[in-house]
Design a protein around this nucleic acid. Structure first.
Lengths: 340, 340
DNA sequence: TCTGGAAATGTATACGCTTGCAGTCACATT
DNA sequence: AATGTGACTGCAAGCGTATACATTTCCAGA
C-alpha cells in the first residue's frame, strides 16, 4: 500500500541500491541521478520505512533518555534541552521514566532490551548506587550522563561542590555562624549532586569553624512541600539556624513559606539560599546559585552525538564537562541580626 | 552476534513460528511448549528485535506525543501522565516538540512520515487553526487530543468555559465590577482553551453588566514574566481593574508580583484568580480553578489505547471527556474595597 | 585506438520477525 | 474402521531497506 523504495527505483529507472544511496547522501552517485531520484521521491511522497532501515542497517536512529522524573522542573528543563539537539540531528527520543527513586520504584529496562532499541543512552541524574545502573554503564554503546557519576562515562554537570561552597560562603559573609542544611534525603540514596553539595557545605562549615550540629540538617526531598516541612523542623528546635542553605530552589521556596508562617521575614530574620535559579526565584526574591539547566541537556546530547558519529580519522575524545554557575544575591539573604 | 528467535527455536526444538507465538501469548500453543520456550528464552537472555518485529508485523509499538512545549509546567505534567500509561502498556513514547507556536516555529512532522513511525498520535493543546494540524487529524490512525478541537477527534479537557465562569463569578461575588482579563495572546493564534476561557469570562461580564472595556484585556503568553508585564500594563491605566482573571496560574504569579511592586496587596487592594492550581499556587495564596493536569494525560492515553486495541466484538466508541475542575479560594481574592 | 582505474550503478542477500497456509496428530464421532 | 474436528506445529513467503560485491560506464593517459 505505502510507497516503497522499489516504487521510487522503478519510477526513476534505477536500482533500489542507487535510490538508497542517493537519498541518504552517500557518495558515488551522479549528481544528476541524485537530483532525479530526490525529485521523484518527493513527488511520490516517499518516506523511508524506519523499521526496514533499522533492521537492515542495525542502527535504530533513536536515543534513550532515562530519567527519574519527567515533570519536575529541573528534569523537564533538561529534557527540553536534550530534545532540541536530538530533533535537530534527526534522532528519535525515547523517554524512559524510571520512576521515583525515593520510593524504590526504579525500573531501568534490562540492558539487552535497551541495546536492541537505541543507539545511545542519556542518563539524567540517577543515583550511582542504583544496582540497575551499573550494567548500563558497562554497556558498549555511546552514552552520556547529566549530574555526575564516578568514572567510566562522560558526565555533564555543574561543580556542585563549588556551587554549595559559594552559596554557603555568602551566608558566612553575612555573619551567619549557625547555618542549616536542607538536603534531599539521607546519605544512602543520594544523587551525586547531593553528596557533592553536602561536601561543599561542610567544607565551609569546617573552614570557618561554624556550628556543627546534626540537628541543623533536614531532608526536603527536593520538593516545595518537603522543603517547608524540613524548615519547620529546623525552626522547631531550641536553637534554630539563622540561615539555611537549600540544595534546590524548590526546597528553598518551601523554606521561605515556613519562615513566613512563623511570622518571620526571610532575609531579615532568617536567610535562605538555594541552587538552580528556578523561574520563580526572582519573584520570590530568593538568592541562589544559578545553573543553566537546559544547557546541561544540550551539552550532554551533543556529547552523545559526538560519540555516535566518531570516525577513525576524527576520534572522539571523551571527557566530562563542568558548566559554570553564577551566584545571584537577592532579598532572601541578609546580615545576621543581633538577636532573633 | 545477538540471540535471535532462531537460536531460541533451535534450543527449544521447535520452529521459529512457535517461539513467536509462545512468547507473544498467542493461542494455539501447548502450555507445556510455551513454558519451555519461555524458560529457554529467558535463559538465553533473548530479546526480540523491535525493528524486525515492526517490519514484519507493520506495527511500531510506539506513540507520537506532539506538544508545543516540553518544560512548561502544564505540558510536562501532562506528558508525565501520558508516559505512565504508555509505559504500562509497553508502548514506546516518541516525544515530538513542535516548537513555540507564538513564534511560528511549528514543525509538525509530515503526515506520511508520522504514519510510518507510530501506531497512534496524542496531541497536546495545539491551536486548531494550525495548518499542519489538519492533515494529521485526517489521518486514519488512533489519536486523541488534550485541550480541545472541534470535532473529528477524541478530546480530553476541562470545561474551560465553565472554569472561566466560576473564576470570574467569584470575583463578582466579591463585589468587583471592573475586572481585567489576562489572556495568553491575541485571538488569531489561540489554543481552544483560550477561546473558551475568554468566552466564559465574557459571559459573566455580560450577565452582570460589568464594565466592558478593551483596555481591561492584556496578553501574558502564559508565562510569569508575561503575566507581570500584562498586569503592569493594566495597572498603568487611568482606571485600573479592581480584580483580574488570569487564564493560567503562572500568569497570575506574575500579576501578583506586579501588584506588590506597586505597593499594593493582592486580595486586599486587587484580587487575582487563575486556572490550574499550580504547585506554587498554594504557597503564593493564589485563588484558582484546579484542574487535574496529569490526569488529562492519563485519560487521553487510555483513550488512545482503547482505540488501538479495539476489536470487532468490542467496538470502540469514541467520545470526548470533560474533566471536573474545583474552585479553590485563597488569599488572593477578596471583597472590593471602597476606594483603591 | 587501447587500457587502467575510478566512478556509477546493479545484483542479490541478509536483517529477524510475523503470519497465512498446510500439515500432523490425538481423539471423538459415525 | 473410517472420518471429522480441533489443537498444535512447521513451512516459507514476505516486510522494506542496506550493503558487500560484481558489473558497467566513463575518461584520461599512453
Amino acid at each position: 500500500m505505502a510507497i516503497t523504495i522499489r516504487d521510487v527505483a522503478a519510477a526513476a529507472g534505477v536500482s533500489t541500491a542507487t535510490v538508497s544511496r542517493a537519498l541518504r547522501g552517500l557518495p558515488n552517485v551522479d549528481e544528476a541521478t541524485r537530483d532525479r531520484v530526490k525529485a521523484i521521491a518527493a513527488e511520490l511522497d516517499y518516506v523511508i520505512s524506519p523499521s526496514a532501515s533499522r533492521l537492515a542497517s542495525g542502527r535504530t536512529g533513536s536515543i534513550a533518555v532515562i530519567t527519574p522524573y519527567i515533570s519536575r522542573w529541573f528534569f523537564s528543563e533538561v529534557i527540553s534541552g536534550v530534545e532540541s539537539i536530538l530533533q535537530q540531528a534527526g534522532l528519535d527520543m525515547l523517554l524512559i521514566n524510571v520512576g521515583d527513586y525515593q520510593n524504590g520504584h526504579a525500573r531501568i529496562p534490562p540492558t539487552p532490551r535497551l541495546k536492541r532499541r537505541v543507539d545511545g543512552i542519556l542518563i539524567i541524574a540517577l543515583p550511582p548506587q542504583d544496582p540497575d545502573l551499573e550494567p548500563i554503564l558497562r554497556l558498549d554503546m555511546p552514552k552520556s550522563m547529566i549530574g555526575g557519576v564516578t568514572g567510566g562515562i562522560d558526565c555533564i554537570a555543574i561543580d556542585d561542590f563549588h556551587a554549595a561552597r559559594s552559596a554557603t560562603e555568602l551566608l558566612v559573609e553575612n555573619g551567619h555562624r549557625r547555618i542549616g542544611l536542607l538536603a534531599g534525603g539521607p546519605a544512602e540514596a543520594r544523587f551525586v549532586a547531593e553528596t557533592q553539595r553536602e561536601r561543599g557545605f561542610r567544607s565551609v562549615v569546617t573552614a570557618h569553624g561554624l556550628d556543627e550540629d546534626p540537628m541543623l540538617e533536614a531532608f526536603g526531598r527536593f520538593t516545595i512541600d518537603g522543603g517547608e516541612r524540613a524548615m519547620l523542623a529546623l525552626l522547631n528546635q531550641p536553637e534554630p539556624p539563622t540561615a539555611v542553605f537549600a540544595m534546590s530552589d524548590e526546597m528553598a521556596f518551601g523554606a521561605l513559606q515556613a519562615i513566613r508562617s512563623r511570622g518571620l521575614e526571610p532575609g531579615v530574620d532568617i536567610s535562605v539560599i538555594g541552587i538552580d535559579n528556578h523561574p520563580m526565584s526572582g519573584y520570590l526574591s530568593l538568592s541562589t546559585v544559578a545553573q543553566p539547566v537546559a544547557q546541561l541537556g544540550v551539552i550532554a546530547a551533543e556529547h552523545l552525538l559526538a560519540q555516535m558519529f566518531t570516525t577513525s580519522d576524527s576520534p572522539y575524545s571523551p571527557g566530562s564537562v563542568t558548566v559554570e554557575t553564577t551566584l545571584i544575591e537577592r532579598g532572601s539573604t541578609g546580615p545576621l541580626r543581633d538577636r532573633l
